[in-house]
């Protein structure tokens, strides 16, 4: 029994000699966790809670057999996330709107961007395309 206890004690003492590697991991882990917390707190301070600010930009226009595909990037520069964003595209020749097309983007998170596309049936060229967000929901 006494021998056993002695051995246990020995084992215990051995374990208190914590390898440097474990402390290295602990340090890296601590930096990561504190970093995440700090990052969140930092954003809590700088975010002013501005409402969604949505800009729709044309990414590229692809010609298809039966019309055009207008790929777009929608960007939210506000501090709040917008849901169900209604993107509308107008195909204009001069002041006249020839065709409209639309799509709903599920979510555009704050300070982030999402991609989408709109189809138009018009085949002839020489037009202008105007894209804009019509509205959103809060998530």
């Amino acid at each position: 029994m006494a021998e056993n206890e002695k051995e246990n004690e020995k084992n215990d003492r051995k374990k208190t000699n914590i390898p440097a590697l474990e402390w290295f991991f602990a340090a890296v882990g601590l930096i990561l966790v504190v970093g995440v917390l700090g990052f969140l707190i930092y954003h809590a301070i700088i975010d002013k809670g501005t409402p969604p600010n949505l800009n729709v930009k044309i990414d590229s226009i692809v010609q298809r057999e039966n019309g055009f595909l207008v790929k777009f990037v929608i960007e939210n520069t506000g501090d709040e996330t917008a849901a169900d964003v209604n993107v509308e595209g107008e195909l204009k020749k001069g002041a006249e709107t020839i065709e409209t097309s639309g799509v709903t983007v599920d979510y555009v998170p704050s300070h982030s961007e999402k991609k989408g596309g709109l189809f138009f049936k018009e085949k002839s060229g020489g037009f202008e395309i105007e894209l804009h967000a019509k509205g959103y929901n809060t998530p």
Binding site: T16, A26, V28
Partner: peptide, 17 residues
């Protein structure tokens, strides 16, 4: 002998990371 902090740092914090 190893303090609660030591265990917390070496296991919980590393685990969460």
């Amino acid at each position: 002998e190893s303090s609660a902090w030591s265990v917390f740092l070496r296991y919980t914090v590393v685990g969460y990371a």
